[in-house]
Design a protein around this nucleic acid. Structure first.
Length: 117
DNA sequence: CGTTTGACGGTCC
DNA sequence: CGGACCGCCAAAC
């Protein structure tokens, strides 16, 4: 132990990381969906948390998080502007004009998929 | 400890 | 259909 995370917990960022990590392979989610699922954070915060996600371990599939329009708004934050698209296409997602085709079909909304009945 | 930000979202026009 | 504007709320400075 590095005597570091003794009380470092319950960070809102951790909740965001956790939800994003639950995003299935070949699916995508939105900032708003994650924020809405948590209910305590805003969509902006989700995107902002993604910045820190690069240093997180295990890494967070930030490439599976897009905006509500289905656009790869965060592609510019990856190693390469095309990195995000390459990763999504590698998972079977088709992207055209920087936008996910059949976005609603590959959309994975935690508020719906993880909802309790 | 006040201000700014931030990979957004929804509404308004 | 699209541009503009406000709200959100914690983290970063």
């Amino acid at each position: 132990m590095r005597g570091k995370n003794t009380k470092t917990r319950h960070s809102y960022f951790q909740d965001i990381f956790d939800v994003v990590r639950l995003t299935p392979h070949g699916r995508v989610t939105t900032y708003g969906s994650v924020a809405n699922y948590l209910g305590t954070v805003t969509p902006r915060m989700v995107g902002w948390a993604m910045n820190k996600s690069f240093r997180e371990d295990p890494p967070v599939p930030a490439h599976r998080v897009v905006n509500r329009k289905g656009e790869l708004s965060g592609r510019n934050f990856f190693s390469s502007p095309t990195m995000m698209q390459e990763m999504l296409e590698s998972e079977g997602i088709t992207i055209e004009q920087n936008q996910i085709r059949d976005f609603k079909e590959v959309l994975w909304d935690p508020s719906i998929e993880l909802k309790e009945e």
